[in-house]
Design a protein around this nucleic acid. Structure first.
Length: 271
DNA sequence: AGAGGTACCTGGCAGC
DNA sequence: TGCTGCCAGGTACCTC
């Protein structure tokens, strides 16, 4: 999926088009996502005005006075602004129409994403209640990470990808951040010194911030709110570079599988 | 409570 | 050209 930088890029891309706009019509061509799109979504949102467009973890939140529209892009989802007259393609499952010129279109070939609506306080919503801290805030620091890490013995890569600890870090940026911090992806969380957690937290923040500046990473099909790709893939140091040489020490980059996901690392730079 | 595996779904690609 | 098998940015839910 879209990881945090891609969701943030989408959020920033669509926000200026949507703030202050009123939902007029919602066209659902295929409601079968991770969970079915609520059948009464149109009735709930009709004539409601968008007062904020935010991101929490990898969720996009479009808030009105009464409701929050929750959108998750899953593995292959994109959201972009288009002309409502543009004919929908095969995987364009939902259109949110705001006036004759603005259409927010949701596309998702694999349909692992989700579109939900709630009038609940999000801090009490089941999808949000257990979420960990945002990595780009001061709540995410070496103390926090170390406190949660020292009592566990799982691989550090799986640990930083656990959204109940810290949100938004997916498979690409987990590999990239560990490379930057010089930590081997299989190293057990309780066998890493606190000083290395300091390095890791700053590496995670650096990687995510740089990716946001580049507009995210486009590997296959990700596009931002204006239907343009992101350019961070050109800056990836290890992800997808198995067999190539490490930019620091020229050692061959390795690929292993951890928890059914590929990890990429430099066996010399990362211990 | 924590860890690990499974399921959801489609498309692209390598290999035959 | 066409088939098969594998891989892919996520995460809730199940079992142990």
């Amino acid at each position: 999926m879209p990881e945090l930088p891609e969701v943030e890029t989408t959020c920033r891309g669509i926000r200026p088009h949507l703030l202050g706009k009123t939902f007029q019509q919602i066209i659902v061509r295929n409601a079968k996502l991770r969970w079915p799109i609520p059948q009464d979504i149109h009735q709930q949102l009709h004539n409601e005005k968008i007062i904020s467009v935010e991101r929490r973890a990898k969720y996009l939140l479009l808030k009105t006075k009464m409701h929050t529209l929750i959108i998750h892009l899953g593995m292959s989802g994109s959201l972009y602004i288009t002309d409502p007259n543009t004919p929908p393609e095969k995987h364009d499952h939902v259109d949110f129409l705001f006036n004759k010129k603005i259409c927010l279109r949701y596309t998702d070939p694999r349909r692992f994403g989700a579109i939900l609506i709630t009038d609940q306080d999000l801090t009490k919503h089941p999808l949000f209640i257990k979420l960990g801290v945002e990595p780009l805030t001061s709540d995410f620091n070496a103390d926090y990470l170390y406190q949660h890490a020292k009592s566990r013995g799982i691989a550090i890569k799986n640990f930083i990808m656990n959204s109940h600890i810290v949100t938004g870090i997916g498979n690409i940026y987990a590999s990239e951040a560990l490379f930057l911090a010089g930590i081997h992806p299989t190293r057990a969380t309780n066998r890493i010194a606190k000083s290395r957690y300091t390095k890791l937290t700053s590496a995670i923040k650096t990687v995510l911030e740089k990716a946001i500046l580049a507009g995210g990473t486009t590997l296959r099909d990700f596009v931002n709110g204006e239907k343009k790709p992101g350019y961070f893939s050109q800056q990836l140091q290890v992800y997808g570079r198995e067999g190539e040489t490490c930019g620091h020490c020229k050692t061959i980059i390795k690929k292993i599988v951890q928890g059914q996901r590929s990890s990429f690392y430099c066996p010399r730079c990362q211990r």
